[in-house]
Write a protein that binds this DNA or RNA. Structure first.
Length: 760
DNA sequence: GAGCACTGC
């Protein structure tokens, strides 16, 4: 053994025990560690060692201070038990309630036992959210006394904070690991994979669970830990049960490792009768707490922006009234809205301190945060003592029959209600006021929120699975299998886009489509766009369609905002308007006020730029030319034609004169969304999305020519199998005209439709 | 003449 060069510059007193062969453990903190057979005793000794085993540098004072705090975590006292289970099993299910320390500690315990750095492997820990991956990685880097991005790092979209060959513990988003799996089906870089927050059941985590369950059979050296906060662990245990039928072993559930949480008790109150108007009841409850309860901040859960802003106004009004009437018995109240589309600066207001008493000796002030579900998982606010839970949230639902995802205000699940209540007990004992009866809680609320995989359009997920080499998507071993109709819809769409062939096999085109972090329609349109010599423009449009709405419309400046929008509008269609907005933004980027003056979200535009750059890199990787047409007329035409190649299933035909449209094949009656910039009502339009709000609308709309539909999507627009109706007659007329021009030649050369399931 | 629950690649 050679003296560690890193220590040469340190005085001997700090170099550890000095060169000695008598006791290797003095110089080598991991001396005697056998991978995956490590005992708690050994780990604790290594943690207390003078040298950091991974950097061979002396531990800092900061490290020792943090270690002290770590020892107090519930999970720390179960280290021996964990290491034993880890040694003996390939797959482990772990349950740790909030405050158990599982997210920071378990991956470290795993590292000490698995010793990934000795075999050139990594330990991965997935998170559903980017911020969590980043902040936990930073925390763990501090705990392990290493620099973030070296031994401990993170990987999220747009940001890879890892160093090849150095990083052995990596926090990452679940979606990122899924992406990696598409290019390395064995996930061979990893020795242990930890899926954290599995109870949230994101689409990516659900797919990863299916993949890992399979992968574990092929890669016996891969260990898997599924971590969850709620007690639906039995379901995970069953799913990951070990059964080796060849060996004739009995099926036994995956082992469970359980750690208690550490939170304060929260007293739950229910209403005696159901509340007919939950917003009104919520406001009443907040004011009741303000008048009658001890100091402490309030968190109220509502469903959306409008509801929240409205409630904030009303609460503020009433609270000011109370303060004016009786300043000696009621303190001032501050009401803060919280939802995701709020600019980050305004989101920060939730961390402001509650107001001071109106006069010395008078009651202290109180803060009320009125929030969407964002405060249920993504953001924690310290100092909350009271939670008001009306029992509703907006949830995504997918209707495969009409192929529409929409948001519906729906009752929350018991798990969700529990999570909300828990928000009151983070700093001290709290109270939770549920605006529904205990009977309804017990008998009406579902145990768990439906996993995302059951509530989503799966076109994207199915393409990913195909890319992952999953042959039989219908019989894939899902933790919860999606509705067959949802899968059929996805397969059908991918077949029409030529991403899957008629046998359901991934085509070469489909393989490239899957490489793009985009919906299949967008990916298809981008890949074919060089054929129309407009890929530079389609690239921009694709980026703009992948980001949130860029248009701002402050309530008191609506007219000015609409006027600014009109200045940027291109009459041929909203897609071209988006392109125009981005190009103007690019040209004016050095003018900080340009976006603001034009009522555009600078944040969203910067995001579009980021997405565009990422897509451009993927295009370059697959040699997809980025080209443009000089002539504006030809260019715009080419753009609209390229759009058609991706969105031919999103076409509507005008019916009658009242501006109503019928979607092609589905025959849904839809209207142009009021945000639409088309100055006329063209006969044929292509739309980016169908939204179901107060009425069915089509949003982001561009005029197309029916000839293009027949030419670029002959399979989908095969008239022989087209549903009867006005749309078909109109298409028939176009087809007849074309046939006349082309002397009856065209139809036979087009591919024939083989097997399609058309449901009415 | 409407909207944007929340994430993620």
């Amino acid at each position: 053994m050679v003296d560690n060069p890193y220590l040469a510059h340190l005085p001997p007193s700090q170099r550890g025990a000095g060169p000695s062969y008598s006791s290797s453990s003095e110089k080598e903190p991991l001396f005697g560690f056998l991978p995956r057979k490590v005992k708690g005793e050994q780990v604790r000794k290594a943690m207390e060692h003078q040298l950091n085993p991974f950097t061979k540098l002396p531990h800092s004072a900061q490290y020792r201070k943090i270690l002290e705090a770590r020892r107090a975590l519930p999970v720390y006292s179960q280290m021996d038990e964990f290491l034993e289970i880890f040694s003996k099993n390939q797959i482990i299910v772990m349950v740790g309630e909030t405050g158990s320390g599982k997210t920071t500690q378990i991956p470290q315990f795993v590292t000490y036992s698995d010793l990934p750095h000795t075999k050139g492997k990594l330990v991965a820990c997935t998170q559903p959210r980017r911020v969590a991956a980043m902040s936990v990685a930073q925390r763990v880097a501090d705990e392990m006394d290493v620099q973030l991005g070296k031994q401990v790092g993170y990987s999220i979209r747009f940001e890879d904070m890892t160093e090849a060959g150095t990083t052995f513990l990596k926090y990452m988003t679940d979606g990122m690991l899924l992406r990696e799996a598409m290019n390395d089906k064995e996930l061979s870089r990893y020795s242990t994979i930890i899926l954290d927050e599995a109870h949230e059941r994101t689409l990516a985590t659900d797919i990863l669970m299916g993949l890992l369950k399979n992968l574990a059979k092929r890669r016996k050296d891969l260990k898997i830990i599924v971590m969850s906060a709620t007690l639906d662990a039995v379901k995970f245990q069953k799913y990951f049960s070990l059964h080796d039928t060849a060996a004739g072993e009995e099926t036994s559930p995956a082992p469970l490792f359980k750690v208690p949480g550490r939170t304060h008790p929260v007293e739950i109150f229910y209403t005696q009768e159901p509340e007919p108007d939950y917003v009104e009841a919520a406001i009443r409850t907040v004011l009741m707490i303000h008048r009658a309860e001890d100091p402490g901040d309030i968190l109220l859960f509502l469903t959306g922006e409008e509801e929240i802003e409205d409630a904030c106004r009303k609460i503020k009004l009433e609270a000011d009234d109370l303060l004016n009437t009786d300043p000696s018995s009621v303190g001032p109240l501050m009401c803060v809205p919280l939802y995701s589309s709020l600019p980050p600066q305004q989101q920060q207001r939730i961390f402001d301190a509650a107001p001071k008493p109106s006069q010395e000796g008078y009651p202290p002030g109180r803060k009320v945060v009125v929030s969407t579900n964002i405060a249920e998982t993504s953001l924690t606010i310290d100092g909350i003592v009271y939670v008001v839970d009306p029992g509703f949230s907006k949830q995504k639902v997918y209707n495969p029959r009409i192929r529409v995802e929409s948001l519906l205000v729906s009752p929350i699940s018991k798990a969700s209600a529990q999570q909300r209540a828990g928000r009151a007990g983070r700093t001290r004992p709290g109270k939770c006021f549920r605006l529904y009866t205990e009977k309804d809680f017990i008998s009406e609320l579902e145990e768990q929120t439906h996993p995302e995989i059951l509530r989503s359009n799966l076109a994207n997920a199915v393409l990913e699975l195909a890319k992952l080499g999953i042959k039989d998507l219908v019989r894939f071993d899902y933790l919860d299998a999606p509705a067959p109709e949802t899968l059929m819809r996805a397969l059908e769409l991918l077949n029409y886009l030529a991403a899957l062939d008629d046998e359901g096999e991934l085509t070469a085109l489909g393989g490239v489509m899957a490489e793009f972090p985009l919906d299949p329609q967008l990916a298809k349109m981008l890949i074919v766009s060089p054929e129309f010599k407009v890929s530079n423009e389609i690239l921009t449009i694709t980026a703009m369609l992948s980001i949130p709405n860029v248009w701002l419309r402050p309530p008191n400046q609506r007219a000015a905002a609409d006027q600014a929008k009109a200045m940027l509008t291109v009459p041929e269609g909203d897609h071209l308007t988006m392109l125009n907005v981005f190009n103007n933004y690019s040209q004016n980027k050095h003018d900080r006020n340009w976006a603001w003056n034009n009522f555009l979200s600078a944040r969203a535009l910067a995001q579009a730029e980021n997405v565009r750059a990422q897509l451009l890199r993927t295009m370059e990787k697959y040699d997809i030319d980025v080209i443009s047409l000089e002539d504006e007329k030809k260019r715009n035409l080419g753009i609209r034609q390229a759009l058609t190649c991706g969105f031919f299933m999103h076409v509507a035909h005008k019916e009658g004169e009242k501006g109503s449209y019928l979607t092609v094949k589905d025959n849904q009656v839809v209207a142009l969304h009021p945000s639409c910039g088309l100055d006329s009502q063209p006969e044929w339009v292509l739309f980016n999305e169908f939204v179901l709000t107060k009425r069915p609308y089509i949003r982001t709309v561009t005029e197309v020519k029916p000839e293009w539909l027949l030419e670029y999507a002959p399979v989908y627009f095969d008239l022989a199998s087209f549903p009867e109706g006005e749309t078909k007659s109109a298409l028939q007329r176009v087809a007849n005209k074309r046939r006349g021009i082309s002397n009856g030649g065209g139809e036979e050369t087009r591919p024939k439709k083989k097997h399609k399931k058309e449901k009415n």
